[in-house]
Design a binder for these strands. Structure first.
Length: 106
DNA sequence: CGTGTGACGCGAG
DNA sequence: CCTCGCGCCACAC
């Protein structure tokens, strides 16, 4: 009952899911979109991150390759990486092992 | 209402 | 491992 493809994927729905990502775990843009009932709206999730409200764990959202999508070296990318490492997420060769840190909703 | 754009994903080469 | 191309979705002009 969670897949209402008649309506568009709203930022609010995306934020709600992002908030559910536990500390020390990460989710991909596509995964969030899928959980929201819009398996093809991964791009929309990324677009929504431009509007992420204070307190939202946006840093736990990465791309399907296990890499940060923000421009490498940018302030945002550095902040994201630092916050993730602080939570215990390990970067191997600038990449995160999704098998190990990927979030699996119950 | 058409066109361009992007914190994406995936298949092919 | 890499780059390139196409599909998707919502939004700005």
């Amino acid at each position: 009952m969670s897949a209402s493809r008649k309506s568009k994927l709203t930022h609010a729905a995306i934020f709600t899911l992002v908030r559910r990502i536990p500390e020390g775990r990460v989710a991909t843009y596509g995964q969030i979109a899928r959980l929201a009932g819009h398996p093809r709206a991964a791009r929309q999730v990324g677009y929504a991150m431009h509007q992420c409200p204070p307190g939202l764990p946006w840093h736990r959202v990465i791309n399907a390759r296990g890499r940060l999508s923000l421009p490498e070296g940018s302030t945002g990318a550095l902040t994201q990486r630092r916050r993730l490492e602080t939570e215990g997420v390990v970067f191997i060769g600038g990449r995160i092992d999704l098998e190990r840190h990927g979030w699996q909703p119950d």
